[in-house]
Design a protein around this nucleic acid. Sequence first.
RNA 1: GGGCUCGUAGUUCAGUGGUAGAACGUCGCUUUGACGUGGCGAAGGUCAGCGGUUCAAUCCCGCUCGGGCCCACCA
Length: 789
Amino acid sequence: MPIESKRWEKEFEQEILSEWKKNTPENTFQEKSKKPVFSIDTPPPYVNTPVHVGHTSTYCIMDFIARYKRMKGFNVLFPLGLDRNGLPIEMAAEKKFNKRFNEVPREQFLEMCHKVLEESSAESMDSFYKHGITFNSWKIGTKPGEIYQTDSAHYRSLTQDTFIELYKKGLIYEDVRINNYCPGCQTTIADAEIIYEDKNTFFNDITFKVKGTKEEMIIGTTRPELVTTCGMVIFNPKDDRYQHLEGKTAVTPIFEKEVPIQSHPMAEIDKGTGLAMMCSAGDLSDIRFFREMNLKPIIAIDTTGKMNEHAGFLKGLSVRKAREKMIETLQEKGLLVNQKQTTHRTPVCERSKDEIEFIEMKEYYLKQLDFKEKMKKIALDTKFFADQSRSLLLDWIESISIDWPISRRRYYATEVPLWYCTKCKEVILPLKGKYHQPWREKPPISKCPKCNGTDFKGEKRVLDTWFDSSISPLYILQWSRDHSFFKKNYPCSLRPQGKEIVRTWLYYTLFKCYLLTNQKAFENVWIHHHIVDEHGKKFSKSKGTGVDPKEVLDKFGAEPFRMWVALEGNLDRTDFRCSFERIEGGKKTLTKLWNTCRFISLFPKPKNKPKKLDEIDEWILSEINGLVEKADNGFGKYDFHNPTVDVKHFLWETFSSHYLEMIKSRAYNKEKAFSKEEQESAIWTLYQCLEKMLLLLAPVVPFITHKLYQEIFGGNAHDRAFPKSEKTGFKGDFSTEELVGLNSGIWQFKKEKGLALNKEIPSYKIPKKFKSIEKTLQSCHKIGKIEFS
RNA sequence: GGGCUCGUAGUUCAGUGGUAGAACGUCGCUUUGACGUGGCGAAGGUCAGCGGUUCAAUCCCGCUCGGGCCCACCA
């Protein structure tokens, strides 16, 4: 049946979606299938903020991969997860109810979080669904392939199982240490949760005295409020200006504390005055310095971000206020000799953007320093797409300097599953396989195994959110839940994710999975860059510059967007600029594909392959087979860009502009200039090429290929095997460029002579190599007599 | 300071050791049979700069400049 409508309409998508919703066996993960499993550990999006086109683009590419792998005969495990734990949810709840988490009872705060979660879950899923992304299931559940939520009892129990196992292995320990503390979130955070911002601050030159002399020293600092914690003054061993100070004692301004003066290579001659005051916990370098020099740190900032009793007259002030007051006081006493504005790379909390302070607290740590070399090996043993993305991970592993602090003093996250005997302090571990809330549940035993004590205290702290996100491949592959399934299918085939979370999600996942399974977690890792706005700037939620996928769906529908994602570039190498104009360009290719099908559908499809094919038919078949091979190779490396560009070029140029023009008269055969067999050869070839083109494009543009395939060939394109490259009978007397050049030359010749393209020309000179397609050229260009030379 | 990456047409990007490519945009021409959301054509580039290897460099190597990202102990 010929196709009637003249173009692809976005309204078609609705029908197809509802058809897929009713009947999608090919998307479902078949637990009992004998096909090899290809597992994709997709990033669970945070539910409280709607996704933008950056997300939908990357999930579309993941869907390209899933669809391609299905056509290649894999049983594709492609579940959607929803991330619902942790600070973003808590912060949203605090904002919505205008209450800090520690101002209300814990149960009540959890209720607030649940309210926020209830209101926010559906929208992102709807966007994914409308983009034609074929997650295995749209149902929230616990079976392989079903949507999982990281805050479900099922997921959290697995997170706790990993804690219990690592604890038993002796890899988790509790220690009192100076670590990163976010005063806004009021919790310890890991290095990976810190980002750096350039902040304006003052570089203050302040006066220290040298004990027993009249000499004064000028020392520059950005943190004058920490003078009280100064433990030493240093200068560079090669700095001639200060050699005489070696071994003397400095007296700090205002606090009048005596500290040693020493030479130390960490002091740089040309920084400030060349003298540095070493404070405990001004930044990470200070912490290391105090450790090295065996100095006792003085912590002057408490857990609310305010100065404590060590800060003397600054006590009770916030760090910023204390700094202002200190500068004021120094100025009054004539101890501030100079002040200039400078920008300082300041560590801030990536969530709340508060400046990090360094505070001593008791926290649980997971050992990671001992495994750096092993982790590097795993990084080298995992395939990265693009390969150069691996260095993001290697750089991070290289820079790790402390163990991973995993406990957090917050509420909405997976609880640390521990109880303590109040009598003998024995740590009580629960059994695996169940979700535990020690802060409100009884311990799993009634008597302490060590002292027979009967009174226990449940742990109040929770786990870092990355501690649970980092088990996603274990979760989707049923670790500790279905042993044979896990054994058969681990490591996970593919982790697709953004470059910005290499040091968190990727690193922590590889790390934890290694500790638990002694193996790499992934065969392949695909790292993507970002969709940026028209000016090349990052989408920013706070500035509201993210493009809403709904706007794209309203304007274009999903299909032109998917086409654009594939055509625009390689997202594993570069950022894309989001441009509606260029998405519109994707739509044109759909129209071209549609009309190509419409043309072919004018001719009844031959039942059998003709015995003999015309040379030009063999030629186009060899072209499409080459294309199939290229696409298969590219898709296999998660390159959907180059093959799609190639298919588009083939469709538009080689196939439409050249092949179709050359066989039109033979396919119509209105003047009966061709035999029936010759005519059928053309028509059969048209259908062959079309079927392969549709199947090549099916992973990228599933809607249009589905509809066209169904109308023309019957059946479901997404259920078909990916096309294979076949040998053809093309002898190859001429190359494709030569043929294209020949046709273009003739068209140009006619144009220059002012002749219509369908006008006859009495004769034309053509190279001998085209002899085998003489009849084709004659009928296409209406040449009376071809002179071969 | 270190690392990665990019610098090609007005714009966004491909690309190759041998005459420089596409899309979009611009301008001109083209109106009936798959497609005007089409077709044909034009203008537009010292392939960032400098040096080296080579018969030949936009491509390989080195340096410089300029963007972007990541890391780092700039008091």
